[in-house]
Amino acid sequence: MSTTPSATRKGSLWRTIKAVSWSFFGVRARGDYEQDVQQLKPLHIVAVGFAGVVVFVGGLIFLATWVVGK
């Protein structure tokens, strides 16, 4: 059995959250990006990114209803 690169990737949840957060701002150091590509699993990045979008949109909705309600 051959080992695929995705099977040997070891990325922590915190590192994934950090990478996705920096990408939301559009600021990422090239060296960190290269490490993330090698270590993080794409499925984890998509899941954390989706959760981040849900939190962001929820925050915007809350902010809008709070401002309009006053």
Rank of each mutant, 00 (worst) to 15 (best):
E34D: 09
F62Q: 12
S21N: 07
R9L: 06
K70R: 15
S6T: 11
V53L: 04
R30D: 06
H44T: 04
K41F: 00
W66V: 11
V55T: 15
V46I: 14
V54Q: 05
P5S: 05
D36R: 00
S2L: 00
K41M: 04
F24L: 08
D32L: 12
T16G: 08
F25V: 13
T3N: 09
K18A: 15
V67W: 15
W66D: 02
I17D: 04
M1S: 10
V27P: 00
G11M: 03
F56S: 04
R9C: 06
S6N: 03
V67E: 14
T3Q: 06
T8N: 05
R28N: 13
F56M: 09
G49K: 03
S23Y: 00
F56E: 07
R15L: 10
L43G: 03
R28Q: 07
T65Y: 01
G58L: 03
V37I: 11
G49S: 09
F25G: 11
G59N: 10
D36I: 06
L63W: 14
H44K: 05
L63Y: 14
L40D: 15
V37G: 00
G31M: 11
A7I: 02
F24S: 13
S6D: 15
G52A: 10
S23K: 03
F25L: 15
I45C: 06
G59L: 11
R9I: 01
T4K: 08
Y33C: 03
K41V: 00
W14A: 10
R15C: 11
E34A: 09
V67M: 12
P42F: 03
K70Y: 02
A7F: 11
F25W: 11
W66I: 12
G49A: 02
A19K: 05
P42A: 05
E34R: 14
T4Q: 06
K10T: 13
T3A: 04
G26V: 07
Q39P: 04
A7K: 03
F25I: 12
R28P: 00
P42E: 07
G11W: 04
